[in-house]
Amino acid sequence: MALQPTIDPLLEEISGPTPRQILRKRVRGHMGLLFGLGVVLLLVVVAILAPVLAPHDPYLQDLGNRMVKPIFMGGTWEHPLGTDHLGRDYLSRLIYGARVSLLIGGVAALISGVIGTAMGVAAGFFGGKVDAVVTFLINVRLAMPVVLVALAVVAIMGGSLQVVIGVLGLLLWDRFAVVMRASTLQVRQREYVSAAQAIGASTPRVILSEIMPNIVNNLIVIVTLEMAHAILLEAALSFLGLGVQPPTPSWGLMVSEGKNMMLFEPWLVLIPGVVLFVLVLAINLMGDGLRDVTAPESRS
């Protein structure tokens, strides 16, 4: 500690950690975040490198080699996770299935994120009539059962990757809107927003440079939650035969195809099921972790 009386009082104690240093330190100490982030990143890499990593063509049927058992049940290294009822390599289908899950999760969350954030921020910032309209739309949306609406639309339009993405993207914006509205309302009260307005900053500028940076941490959390949500919904739709259509490899579809043989060959359901579970768990852990590490510092 400095023992001399300070000559320039203002020179001291501007030495606290920068927000970035705090973030780095918090990330390093957060096991859930590290695990979630690791698993998600690993799966993203796997999905991108699918053509390189997959040992076989996921569509190639080999009816002579149907339902070969995976390696841990006495199978061979030729098909480490065995083959399905059409003799397709299970590992390769699993790897390509990651593409479908991540694509649907990512794009659906992106679409609903854009819609929900725009609505929520507008409602929170402008209030009044805008808020009333948005709140009404949120209530309308919340009154619709997602799964039933998705089933109906897919049943009418026919199931395909694009339709599933579109339907989920247009259905999952409610949580974005609710959370962004609340966060904007909160940040809007802060005096730095008034200060920017008093400086003469335009409304888009105030929203983009004063409001958004302070609510983006909440946004990231919702993105992860909705990604997981969309991935699970896709699996459910595909399982019901109304999502991604065969022969596209999708984890939900793999569970569905395996369910007839579930009693005799439980691994057909277990393998895609466990992978789905791990991905959703990892995304949720990542979201939770991001919320923890980006939480604003409490005043000392």
């Binding site: 927000p19 005096e191 200060a195 500028r205 005043r299």
Partner: peptide
């Protein structure tokens, strides 16, 4: 011509901006 100084310096500065960004904002806006 008219500028404010607010009560709570914990609320009047955007926590995501550096001091340089905060003080130069009026110049950039204008």
């Amino acid at each position: 011509r008219i500028q404010p100084i607010f009560q709570d310096p914990y609320s009047s500065l955007n926590p995501r901006k550096t001091i340089s960004d905060i003080v130069s904002l009026p110049l950039r806006v204008h």
